[in-house]
Design a protein around this nucleic acid. Structure first.
Lengths: 240, 240
DNA sequence: CGTCTGTTTGAAGGATGTCAATTAGCGTGG
DNA sequence: CCACGCTAATTGACATCCTTCAAACAGACG
């Protein structure tokens, strides 16, 4: 009972399929997978895909745009725990508790594919490659989180910013975009929150990076001028 | 071709089975699961269960004792990314890259059950409950990591220490031990590394906590005197 | 009993946060 | 289309928490 517009959501024709969950699936398997995914209306900037505490039902693959995950706890400030770019999977951290542990907010106009988890789980029984891809996805997220722990506990503000920019650059490259020129979909405040820095610090360091000819930043438009130097900085190679 | 001593490793007779991976399995299913796990010789304090970069083959369930995960990156300092207590699963972050992303070191005499991952994956095909438990486990680890991110980016040193102690207390309670009296198996340096603090800071804050009658600490022996206050502190309820 | 490692304590300095004010950007509505 | 107003971003001055350096102390183990 497919409606025509759902065609657009088919993995076969999706340019992201080589990065996304069905990565390792054959044509036929991909069809079974396709059958369970659902399209959502595009989210506008600032709109919530889901709210912290909502019952866990699905995971979501980002199709276009970008999202942030915000976790509020107690009376304390919110914590921005993740940014999601196209092909990345949202919601895997909700499986355990049956509720999503943070709200997912669109940073710009964003479309996602919804994948009901119970059906995904069922399907993963028959498709070892899909199951494996799921495990891999979660495993990668664990590793990324551990890298983030290191960033927050050992790196200086400069190193954090450099890491952040290099990380974005890498992710854009993998998606076929320029690793040197891109647009930040998030505000400075988001970056600060994510990196554990005050907004003002983010601003100041971006300014310093510009002075040192590492980057050229106009508002949210970023041009990386010296990626090697940024990478070195991100790893803490202090040479001054 | 079981040898007698392997009997000890059977989940059926393991006191941790209600917390561990086979949690939701029936008797018969647990037998299939039992069949794939392997015993390892106990690790001595300081010994490595595995080293960063080792090819990923198995996950491990802690049976007794405790472990830490250490990730070295570049020339920078090591980062302690996790402590593992009995019933917890080690190595899930290695699935993706086929290598373990950090070394796992015993903090005291420690025994583990080895679970070859390919066989676990196979078995999870037939046992939905086992599969689910695996997903849940990874999902929980993701959530824990996100909580840790918040700790490192928003909390003061006092809040971090309080969180750490409360967290340990909770985990001991769940395992049937006293949540008020326990022994730290890790050094102050480990705690500092994990929490993103200098050793000296850890020491000073423990001292301050003692002055305020929150805890009584003698070396590695901890007595929690005011758990409520610690919990409040951990959440950032400043009332000074 | 001595050595090594782990822990505690003190003093000083620095990196980053906070507060405050200004400027820029952007959507909205007249 | 421009003006308005709000939010976002920048910049400066100051405060502070934590680190770093240094040294004494304690505990474990040969």
């Amino acid at each position: 009972m497919r409606r025509p517009r759902l065609q657009e959501a088919r993995c076969q024709t999706c340019s992201l399929s080589s990065l996304c969950l069905p990565l390792a699936l054959g044509t036929q398997e991909m069809d079974s997978f396709d059958a369970i995914i659902q399209r959502r209306a595009p989210l506008k900037k600032g709109e919530a895909l889901l709210r912290q505490g909502d019952p866990f039902t699905s995971v979501f693959a980002v199709r276009s745009g970008s999202l942030k995950q915000i976790t509020s706890e107690g009376d304390g400030e919110d914590q921005l725990t993740n940014f999601y770019l196209p092909s990345e999977l949202v919601g895997l951290d909700g499986i355990d508790e049956k509720h999503y542990p943070g709200s997912i907010i669109a940073l710009e106009t964003t479309t996602v594919c919804e994948i009901p988890f119970d059906r995904l789980d069922q399907l993963s029984e028959a498709l070892p490659e899909l199951r494996n891809q799921l495990y891999r996805n979660m495993s990668k997220e664990l590793r990324d989180d551990r890298r983030m722990l290191r960033l927050l506990s050992r790196k200086t503000a400069d190193e954090r910013l450099a890491s952040f920019l290099v990380n974005l650059s890498t992710r854009f490259r993998r998606r076929g975009y320029s690793p040197y020129s891109f647009r930040l979909s998030m505000a400075r405040a988001d970056i600060g929150n994510y990196l554990g820095l005050a907004v003002e610090t983010v601003s100041r360091i971006i300014g310093r990076f510009q002075q040192h000819k590492l980057v050229d930043v106009q508002g949210r438009e970023v041009h990386i001028l010296d990626l090697d130097a940024l990478e070195a900085l991100a790893e803490g190679d202090h040479e001054h």
